[in-house]
Amino acid sequence: MRVNTRSGRTGCRIVDLPRIADPRGNLTFVEGSDHIPFDIARVYYLYDVPGGTSRGGHAHHHLQALIIAAAGSFDVGVDDGVHQERFFLNRSYHGLYVPRMTWRELDNFSSGGVCLVLASAPYEEDDYIRDHATFVAAAGAERAQADAA
């Protein structure tokens, strides 16, 4: 099922990016702390993803991200430890904001699909949570702590 939600229960949301239309080709730009709620510290992209393969499969303790289908399309499944959602990205002027402590998996890449990711922090292995059960437990502990405060 492909769902293109504007804003969801997980805290993830579609961000409309500026689009300057021109007969010579369109232009979209992203300015950190203006279009997205963080300064951009790292940019990376996924491409040549073989059919049937998924990427991601992790969460971050601190990192926030904006995921953009720079070319082609793909799905992004997100999970906050309680709610799950699925976003279909296929426009280079839409980005999916993914807050910290959100599990993400990317799949169903179209041929020639390119996933551009803008991240709030440089790569740091210690920020990754790579086991889903560990993530769910950590997210639950954070919710319990927030409820107690």
Score class of each variant (00 low, 15 high):
S73Q: 02
F38S: 08
G81L: 08
H83V: 14
L96V: 08
Y45K: 10
G57V: 05
G77R: 09
R55M: 14
A70K: 14
P99M: 10
G95P: 03
M101W: 04
V43M: 08
W103F: 14
Y93Q: 09
E85P: 12
H35Y: 11
A69N: 14
A121H: 13
D48Y: 08
V76G: 03
G81E: 01
E31P: 04
S110V: 06
Y45T: 01
L46N: 12
H61W: 13
M101I: 02
G32I: 03
H60F: 10
F38G: 07
A71K: 15
V82I: 15
R91A: 15
D34N: 12
S110F: 04
T53M: 05
P50N: 05
R55I: 06
V117D: 06
G52P: 04
R104M: 07
D80E: 08
H60N: 13
N108D: 10
G52Q: 06
H62C: 09
F87A: 04
G77M: 04
D39Y: 11
L89W: 07
N108Q: 13
S33F: 09
I36E: 12
W103C: 12
A71W: 08
S92L: 11
R55G: 14
I67P: 04
G112K: 01
G112F: 13
A121F: 02
L63V: 10
L96R: 00
G77S: 14
S54V: 06
C115V: 13
G72I: 13
A119N: 03
D34I: 14
G81N: 03
I40Q: 11
P50C: 03
C115K: 00
E31C: 10
D75F: 00
G32L: 05
I67N: 04
F88V: 13
R91V: 05
F38W: 11
A70P: 05
G77L: 10
A41V: 01
D80Y: 07
H35W: 14
N90G: 15
Y93C: 08
V117A: 09
L89R: 08
S111I: 10
G113D: 00
Y97Q: 11
S120N: 07
L66F: 09
D34P: 00
H83T: 11
G81F: 03
D80P: 15
D107W: 14
I36Q: 13
H62M: 09
D34A: 15
S120T: 06
V49L: 08
R100N: 09
A59L: 06
G72P: 09
F109H: 07
G72H: 03
Y47M: 13
F109I: 04
Y93S: 11
P37E: 13
H61Y: 10
P50Y: 03
D75C: 06
M101N: 01
T53H: 06
L89N: 07
L66I: 12
V117N: 05
Q64I: 11
I68C: 05
T102L: 10
N108C: 14
A59C: 09
S54F: 10
R42W: 07
G32V: 07
V78N: 01
